[in-house]
Structures are given as C-alpha cells and as structure tokens.
Simulated assay, not measured.
Amino acid sequence: MQKRPLALIVIVLVALNLRPAMAGLGPLLDLIEQSTGISSAGAGMLTTLPVFLMGIGAFAGRTLRVWLGNRRGVSVGIVLIAVACAARWVWNDASGMFATAACAGLGIAIVQAMVPAVVKNLFGARTGRAMGLYTTGIMGGAALAAATAAGLARAEGWPFSLAVWSLPAVAALVCWLVVLDADQAVKTGHTPKTSLHNQRRAWLLLIFFGIGTSAYTLVLAWLPPFYMGLGQSRDVSGFLLAGMTATQVIAGLGVSTFIGRFPDRRAPLIAVLLCLLAGLACLVLAPVALAFPAIILLGLGIGALFPLSLIVTLDHADDPDSASDLAAFVQGGGYMIASAMPFVAGLIRDQFDDLAKAWMLMGAGVLVLLAMTMRFSPVRPD
C-alpha cells in the first residue's frame, strides 16, 4: 500500500499520453490539409478514426485482460501510441496519417479499458478521486499538445510537432513497468455472470458518455480551425484550445477534490452541462468577442463532464473486474458515438464553410443530456 502515491503519479503520467496524438492536430490542420490534399471531412476523420477505434478496442478490453493482464496490456497500449507518434515524422502523407491515427486509437483504447480496474483495485473507496486525477492527466496532455503544436511546427515542421510525443510515451512505459507490479495491476480471468448488453442502465450510461464525449471530440478537432477561419493566428487558435484544456484540468481537479461531497451526482452534472451549453452559445452568438468566456465555460463543462461520466459509471460497479468490464462497455459504445461528431462537423464545414451549425447540433445534444441526468439517482436499481 505504500506504493499507492507513486502508482497514482505513474497512472497520471500514462494519462498524459492519451490525447496528444489527436490534440496536436487542430492547430496544424490547415498545414496537414495542404500537405496531404485531404478535405475538411477527411481532416475530421483524423479525429473520428482514432476515437472510433478507441471504442472498438474498448469492447475487446475483457478479452485482452484475460489474455495479457492489465499490466502487460497497458504496456502494449503505450507502445502503440509511441510507435504511432514516431511514425508521423517520416510517414505523413494521407495514408500515413490515417494509419497512425488508427494505431494511436487502438493503443489509447487498450490503456483506457485496463486502467479503471487498476484504479479500482488500488484505491477502493477513493476511486472517485483517483479517477478524477487520471482524467485530469488526460486533459493535461491535450493542453500541452495544443499549446506547443504551432511553436514546434514553426521550428521543426509539423511532422516533428506530432512525432515528438513519442518521447513522453516511452518515459511513461518505463515508469509503468518499474512501479506497477503484477499484483497491483490485477491480472484476472473474471467472467461476469450477466451480460451488460441486457442491462438498461449500462446502455443509458453508454449513450450519456457518448453524447458528452462528442463535445470534447468536436472542439478538439475544430476549435482551432474555427478561430483561424475567423482571422485569428495559428498560435492564438492553438492557445485557445490549450486554454480550454487547461480549464478542463482545473475542472477535473475540482471534481477529484469535491466529488466525495456529492453522493448524488446529479447536481454537479446539471451544473457542468449548463456551463457547456453556455459555452456553445458563445461560439454561435459572438465567437470572437466572447472567446474568453466561451473557452472558460467549455473547459469547465467538458473538463468536469468527462470524469463525472466515468465516476457515475464506476458507481455501478462493485469490484475491479466489473468496473473494468462496465467502463469498457460504456467507453466502447460511447467513443463510437462521439467519433461521428468531428466527421459530421467536417461535412458541415465543407457544405456551409462555417461551423455554427455544428455548435448548435452539439447544443441540442447537451439538452438531451440534461434530461438524461435526472435518471442518475444515487440508489442503483437491481
């Protein structure tokens, strides 16, 4: 148990590597389009593809846990992320970008399917706070990638800006193997007695996670190009995305700190959904004049919604194995739903040369989430 604080640090370090392969794309999207010749819809696919494969990979989490165990499985996932990032330095035509996006998506999916069981095993009743820090690490990695993308591209070219993220992935792999032993990582061959596919609450959690994560994938892919289209510079557009993800980190830390005071998760869920809705309204009504409040509101909403969605999911699991099974099911289907949003936004941009309708579509999704939130009472049905 004395290794718990160190293990948490390593889990956060692993989490830092779960978004740069996607978050670094937005500020560079026009350069990538010019270099590869892909359309806006194709550019959206660079986010859609890994997110979709993250969903597919998450569904395979139970089989992978039995085959590999969580410790080795996370290691394989990190290796895939490192290889995908490094390959973009030399294989950066259209086919290379799509192939590396797929590779990174599979790696991220494996890690995300395995980590919840590790957290549940190590931290027990404090799982909510630990998951809050884990998801904060995910958002922190996205912020770093968005903030540094333009500067690195200007200094060494956009392929280097994407490839450099292989280095922290290798560092995370080494730390994971050194600190997390087999007992802590929980290798198991557990098979649940009932199928999650037949549980209505599991499906509700899946749809909730999917619509909520759509907001994240949408702004991750299209916020910088949106502001660049409004006349803002590449650096400013990248910093806006970085500022939003930095706000997400603050929101995630707030969730990890205060979530224990809210056994009924509905009040914080409603608050963060209203923040998200207000941020989307700013993007539609006055995106330049209201850029700062938009970034803050979006960051608070998305940054708190992601860990809250996972925490609510884990509330419905009683042990590490069922936690990992349920998280894999919810994230698997949820990411498949969320993967459509960047592509749909790209189609909207190709058709209307504007993204206002994409923000409005996402706003309608938030209204659906507000209605669904009322179903998440603290007493779980049988």
Rank of each mutant, 00 (worst) to 15 (best):
A153Q: 09
E156S: 12
A153M: 09
G140D: 04
K193E: 15
I138A: 03
A149P: 10
F208D: 12
R154Y: 10
P168Q: 04
T148M: 05
H197W: 14
L204R: 09
W176K: 13
A147Q: 03
N198H: 10
E156Y: 15
W158Q: 05
F160R: 08
V179I: 14
H190F: 15
D183K: 03
K193A: 15
L152M: 09
P159R: 06
L204K: 08
E156D: 09
K187R: 14
W203H: 01
M139E: 10
L196F: 15
C175P: 12
L162N: 04
A172K: 01
F209C: 07
G189E: 13
K193T: 15
P168T: 11
W165D: 08
A155D: 13
A153P: 00
R154V: 06
A142F: 01
L204M: 10
S195Y: 03
W203A: 00
Q199E: 08
G157H: 08
K193Q: 15
K193S: 15
H197Q: 11
A202N: 04
F208L: 09
A172I: 05
L152V: 12
V179W: 14
G151C: 06
M139W: 00
F208N: 07
L196K: 01
A153F: 07
L167M: 13
A143R: 01
G141S: 08
L144V: 07
L173N: 01
A169T: 06
L173S: 00
W165F: 07
N198F: 02
T191D: 13
N198R: 11
I207V: 15
G189H: 14
T191K: 12
K193Y: 12
V179R: 06
Q199N: 13
L162H: 09
A150S: 09
L196I: 11
I207C: 12
W203Q: 02
G189P: 04
A202V: 12
E156C: 12
M139K: 04
L204I: 05
G189N: 12
H197A: 13
S161Y: 07
G140L: 12
A146S: 09
A172E: 01
M139S: 14
R200W: 14
E156H: 14
P168L: 08
L173H: 08
T194F: 08
F160D: 04
K193I: 11
G141R: 01
L205Q: 00
Q184S: 11
E156G: 08
L173I: 11
G140P: 04
L177Q: 09
A146N: 04
P159D: 04
L204T: 06
A169H: 02
A146K: 03
K193D: 15
V174G: 11
